[in-house]
Nucleic acid binder design. Sequence first.
DNA 1: GACAAGGAAGCGC
DNA 2: GCGCTTCCTTGTC
Length: 513
Amino acid sequence: MILPKDLMLGGELSVQGTHLGNLSSFQYHSNRLDLLSDRTDFEFDLNLLDCEVPSLEITDPLPTLNLDCQVPSPSGSYDHYSSSSDMMSPMMFSPGSTSSISSTTSAIKSSPIKSRPNPYQRVFSSLDSPFSPLVMSDSVKEFRQLQASVNVKIEPINQMKNDTPLLRQYLIQERIPVVDEDVKIEPVISMAVEQVKRDIQATCNLLCIGHDPCLWSKEDVARWIQWTMQHYGILAENPFDCDGSDLVKLTENDFLLRLPEGGDLLYAQMDIWRSSAEYNRSEMEQILPPPEQFVHSSGNEGYSSSSSSIKNESRFDISAVLDILDANSPSTNMYETNGCMSDTTLGSPCSMDGMNTSSVNSPSSICTSPPPPYSMAISQLNRNNAVNVVKPASNIPPEDEETDDTDDDDIAVKIPTIKTSTTNIHLWQFVKELLLHPDLYSGCIHWMDREKGIFKIVDSVKVATLWGKRKNRPAMNYDKLSRSLRQYYKKGIMKKTERSQRLVYQFCHPYHL
DNA sequence: GACAAGGAAGCGC
DNA sequence: GCGCTTCCTTGTC
């Protein structure tokens, strides 16, 4: 179940008269109910029950909220909502999942539960929950004792300094309790902001667009729209024929008018990007002296250009910092384990069965989104930061620097790649890149079943050649490339197709998304 | 012959 | 250590 984004929690949580702290969040997962307060985290295993889960009563100032959820049956499960998903991949719900949640709360009614990824959740997916869960599912008896009633008194969340819808959303979804004013909120804000930056940076790298939507060209907008729609499974033509400055002026209604199915999601994403850009601007204004002062203090006339250019360069300085953060992120490791992450860990590739955990998706019901396809690329940014400062993410692919005029180059040049990710890109990412540009590469590789991630290499020589150019391996051939692809079988990135077919490979969920 | 599958060693980061 | 790259063998089509 997804908490409506405008539902504010924070009131007292008591179970059978025992005060358990202030409720920060509650969630239904496929097999458990989580109640989270600022003191601890209660987890109930629904599989141990043959009865309905306890009802939650939320009293003033909000209307009563009655959640009447059925224990999952073998044929269905509750919508799954986990907090550890990886950023660059959409979190999905199991297509077969069902939910029987009824509510009398206006907030809930105004926010119908949809089997779609929550854009806010996706963005903030990679942060660890600050809670150490207290698992109480070992004993049915214990649960039955607690089952009697859970009374939640809701009190308005105190206004936070620097509060923004973005941060509030993060606090709620990442189970970070909203507390009294005297509690330090800065570290939490910092975490949220850094995570947003990291996610956005990754997307920028992937799409070769700037961080600030206001500065996007029409092409940038189209690229971002296409990418976002694809990741949210929105099947429609891009209805936005405008540049970034016009895009950011659109309201949610404007988005919905243009895109009734999914316009709200796109708007939410745009809102995040816009907020982040504004935050960056304010941050830069604090960090950077005025242009004139810059010139005076540094003596470098190179900085005497317009303030906008200075901001632009600074933006990439920040990227370098984010790269360092990214390099230290546990997300990569998460992918490599079993592909699934718990709610309290960072995203990993998981299954689309349960929405969940960041980063790309697997059959397990716990995980959710795929590992960020750009993680490696980002990790290289720091090393190549100098390049970035001079030439921010551009559409100039590595091939541009070569003098080779072969047809392959002509094609490769069109691929929007990032200089910094040129040689560190993973093969599966490269393959996806080709697959995502059927207009350019359908002649050598194409999807056979996009939903299942099955694709066919039509021209093995060309694909290998392109890969070799990207990796600066002139001796690359299909034999070597296919060997690398087969390595992905063990890693869970790809799998053998049901029926062995020549030159046909299949991505594991959710790497193809 | 082309390709699939996988072992093994090596390399660069 | 990871993610390939390279080389190799064996088997299938």
